[in-house]
Design a protein around this nucleic acid. Structure first.
Length: 873
RNA sequence: GGGGGAUUAGCUCAGUUGGCUAGAGCGCUUGCCUGGCAGGCAAGAGGCCACCGGUUCGAAUCCGGUAUUCUCCA
């Protein structure tokens, strides 16, 4: 059975049980600040479990792309070492939102596995939650009894809280679960050791394939549990593992999900899979990671140095590192796997084949840059080794290499080992922990429980039509972080505040209580489909009706920028071509940023054309035409642009200005004329094949033009010309450099004259060519002069003084031979003579300078110099 | 969001405790030599040492800030 068939049969099975098939949500989370990536099938349904929204269908089934790089069983550094862990994987699931519960979940799971997939019942084990004293929970008798009807009791295993109690996080919905495990070992081994004893023991051939979660509790902030009003089913079956079972192989990597990738890696690197342990691990790492990274990029997440982008970068770099070390790839090669990947999975996940060119470019670029980081690191490591005293390399040094220069610690340790050195691992771990603690402390957030004032199933957003509304507080909680201090999160029954989303910033504003008290709303964000308002403090009286008022100015400027973003998107597609796709946007009140796919730098003419295109539509006074509730299919037929990596519902909102139609939830101007003007302020690259435009509109554009204009007038004023200031500046620059050369020449001539003059004045004191004199030069000129004379006269002793801005300078030059023969030291001499001018100084034995604030002391210093020379001879 | 680095000639980079008249290699220009494969020799041009401020007699070097960039952590 091919993997495609496995996937299709799963979905079909549940479709026949009245489940609605829904598409996979994007792997990269956009609207949940608590999570960077989709890490389980249930993520996209979280709002239903929390009761924030009501699902359209109570039974749903899907396959979900997931990414896990941390957690108890998913340490990134472990992936590849065994044959069954992955960063990215697909999770097949069926769901009940307050509909069927344990009975159906258990029966259907069994039916699918044994009758559709025809897995031998003899190989299956199931587990049941044994209860937990901590939580005062008993054995999950209900599940046990249900299983007992299907499987012999010796195949039902008791599981502890760690394995059989599932939680979403520290807080929130949770419940006991039943896992289904399959024993893939040979007959002989089964006879030796019973399978039941190997369940959950990390045996690669006795593995969990399906987890049925019975969500029935809510965990509160203080750790206690309460019953949920509605009970839910959440199941997840690892797709890759299921394929392994059904394709009768011993490793996920031997299924047709991975073999095409592995064959391609073999072809490119010349290393055969299955020859050596080291190369095998490396091949698995590369095969797994390229999948994760490619899907993430397809979902719009580029590698970067912060947040989710950094996780992607780390995954990709780990693959590069393994290739570099164990597959001898010193050139980019991972990008070459994208083709195979998109051929294999493009049908199930069309975003992959659609974006394969960009994915290739980005990966290649990232490979190149990391390979040069590695090269640089090798040089640095070499110098660390050379400068180390013993045979142990300091952990802090290694950490510096890692932290500052990005050189991987495992490479450091490997190279050291080869060269017979030892790495101080403890020192490294200590430094790493210190850095982690620092980061964690800086971003620590603690959340109280919600205080619920009234029940309200779904809150309404009224902000498209009004900026003011009378609202009631539904619930609130305190949130503390180091950076923001104490803040309060408020949820209303309805709100005019737009929550951050679709690239647009959240609204600011205030809340007015009946007694006139005002609470400022500093930001608005969406969490699990709930609009959360952030306030610095809590209203004194939380019940009653508040007047919620959005900051009109910020909203207006943001709307101008958002509408301009749509027009810009349209302009780029018209002018550059339809390969242009939005890769990200940030709409603020003061400016907008738009990232899009394009292969080359925009020329000045293209930028001008884009600006003109947008401004023509602003001048065209196009009215906003919105449709708040239109079936997505219909919207697409009208040509609305949807963004990849966004999750859309069945019905969507479309925003139209002229020929620009986009699926968008943001706030817009009523008419493009409101924008006044659109001005691009910068254009540049953010990644291979991705460009970024930053632009301004309305007030910001006015301000921009005003400032520039004023500056131009000031420049004209200064230049005393009303004509072409560019020409004037150019000719000034030309003149300036000519004058500079002239001055330089004159100074040289003057110095030459002065030099000859001074040479004539030299006095022979016991073979020393001596001169102490005040000259009219600055410190640099004196230096030049002294060295010029030194080049011409041997046994020279010069003390030159000058006066500048009321300050005195003394410089002493002594020919090198003279200085060493007679033990003279210019530094000491100027320090001594500096006393006359109330100053100090120093330098080298043959040339030194001192400065002081008393020019009147110069004659005394000059006289003193002669005495000094007489004394030393 | 929190750290750590980097920024010096067209490019790749040296530059020690503040003082070496700011350097090397490659590239460039010019001349000479040369049956060569990165030709050889010689001469030369090319620097606001990222920017702004401070400390100091003196700052590429020390301190603070800004910008750009790399990197690690969350």
């Amino acid at each position: 059975m091919t993997s495609q068939e496995v996937r299709a049969q799963f979905l079909n099975f549940f479709k026949e049980k009245n489940h609605k098939i829904v598409p996979s949500a994007p792997m990269v989370m956009k609207n949940d600040p608590t999570l960077m990536f989709t890490n389980a099938g249930m993520n996209q349904f979280k709002e239903f479990f929390l009761g924030n929204s009501v699902p359209k269908s109570k039974r749903v089934t899907d396959t979900q792309k997931c990414l896990r790089v941390s957690g108890k069983h998913n340490d990134l550094e472990e992936v590849g070492k065994d044959t069954y862990h992955h960063t990215m994987f697909e999770m097949l699931g069926n769901w009940s939102f307050g509909d069927y519960f344990k009975k159906e979940a258990i029966q259907w799971a069994w039916e699918l596995l044994t009758e559709v997939y025809k897995i031998d019942k003899e190989n299956l084990y199931v587990s049941v939650f044994e209860g937990s004293q901590d939580d005062k929970l008993e054995l999950d008798q209900e599940a046990y009894d249900l299983w007992k009807e299907i499987v012999p009791e010796d195949r039902i295993i008791m599981g502890n809280k760690k394995d059989n109690f599932w939680e979403m996080g520290d807080q929130g919905p949770c419940g006991p679960c039943s896992e289904i495990h399959v024993d893939l070992r040979s007959k002989e081994e089964k006879a030796k050791v019973p399978g039941a004893s190997l369940v959950n023991q990390d045996d690669p051939l006795v593995v969990e394939i399906w987890n049925l979660v019975f969500i029935q509790y809510n965990r509160k902030a203080n750790g206690s549990l309460e019953d949920l009003p509605e009970k839910h089913i959440d199941t997840g079956m690892g797709f890759e593992r299921l394929c392994m079972v059904l394709q009768n192989v011993k490793s996920n990597y031997d299924t047709d999900v991975f073999t095409p990738l592995i064959r391609e890696i073999e072809t490119i690197t010349g290393h055969k899979y299955g020859k050596t342990e080291e190369a095998d691990i490396a091949i698995r790492v590369v095969a797994d990671h390229v999948r994760a990274v490619a899907f993430a990029i397809a979902d719009g997440q580029l590698p970067s140095n912060t947040g989710a982008g950094y996780v992607i970068r780390r995954i990709l770099r780990r693959a590069i590192r393994y290739g570099f070390t164990f597959l001898d790839t010193k050139q980019p090669f991972i990008f070459r796997l994208v083709k195979v990947l998109s051929e294999r999975m493009g049908d199930a996940f069309p975003e992959l084949s659609k974006h394969h060119q960009i994915i290739e470019n980005v990966i290649k670029e990232e490979e190149n840059s990391f390979l040069s980081t590695l090269e640089q690191g090798l040089v640095l490591l070499d110098s660390v080794i050379k400068s180390s005293k013993g045979k142990t390399i300091d952990g802090e040094k290694a950490f510096e290499l890692y932290d500052t220069f990005g050189f991987p610690i495992d490479l450091t340790s490997l190279i050291l080992e080869e060269k017979g050195y030892r790495l101080d691992v403890e020192g490294f771990e200590k430094a790493l922990k210190a850095q982690k603690d620092r980061s964690r402390a800086a971003s620590e957030v603690s959340k109280d429980d919600w205080t619920v004032l009234q029940q309200d199933a779904e809150q309404e957003f009224v902000g498209y039509d009004t900026l003011e509304a009378n609202v009631k507080l539904v619930k609130y909680r305190k949130v503390s972080s180091k950076k923001e201090g104490d803040q309060y999160q408020l949820v209303f029954n309805l709100t005019p505040f737009y929550a951050e989303g679709g690239g647009q910033v959240g609204d600011k504003g205030y809340l007015e209580a009946p007694n006139g008290d005002v609470v400022y709303i500093v930001d608005t964000k969406k969490e699990n489909n709930e609009i959360v308002h952030f306030a610095e403090n809590l209203p004194k009286e939380v019940s009653g009706t508040f007047k919620a008022v959005v900051d009109q100015e910020q909203r207006f400027h943001t709307a101008c920028n958002h509408t301009a973003t749509h027009l810009l998107h349209q302009a780029l597609r018209e002018i550059l071509g339809s390969h242009v796709e939005q890769k990200g946007s940030a709409v603020h009140a003061k400016h907008l940023r738009f990232d899009f796919s394009h292969f080359s730098k925009l020329s000045v003419e293209e930028l001008r054309e884009v600006e003109n295109f947008v401004n023509a539509r602003i001048e065209g006074q196009l009215p906003l035409q919105e449709n708040r509730n239109i079936p997505i299919k219909e919207a697409m037929e009208q040509g609305a642009m949807a963004l990849f990596g966004e999750k859309y519902g069945d019905t969507v909102r479309t925003v139209r200005f002229g020929h620009s139609i986009e699926l968008c939830g943001g706030t817009h101007v009523k008419n493009t004329a409101d924008i006044w003007h659109f001005k691009i302020v910068s254009e540049g690259a953010v990644a291979a094949g991705i460009r970024r435009i930053e632009a301004i509109t309305s007030e910001a554009a006015k301000e921009f033009f005003f400032k520039n204009n004023r500056m131009l007038f000031e420049i004209k004023d200064l230049l005393n010309t009303s004509q072409d200031p560019v020409k004037a500046v150019a000719s000034l620059q030309e003149e300036n450099s000519a004058l500079k050369k002239q001055v330089e020449q004159l100074l040289k001539d003057k110095a030459k004259g002065l030099k000859n003059e001074l040479i004539a004045e030299l006095k022979d004191i016991n073979g020393i060519q001596f001169l102490a004199k005040k000259v009219d030069l600055d410190a640099g000129g004196i230096k030049d002069l002294a060295f010029a004379m030194g080049g011409q006269v041997d046994d020279l002793f010069l003390l030159l003084a000058s006066e500048n801005d009321g300050k005195a300078i003394l410089s002493c030059y002594i020919s090198k031979d003279l200085a060493s023969n007679k033990g003279l030291n210019a530094g000491n001499i100027v320090r001594e003579l500096g006393k006359h001018i109330q100053g100090g100084g120093g330098g080298q034995p043959f040339f030194a300078t001192a400065g002081g604030k008393n020019p009147d002391g110069i004659p005394a210093a000059l006289a003193n110099a002669e005495e000094l020379v007489l004394a030393t001879t």
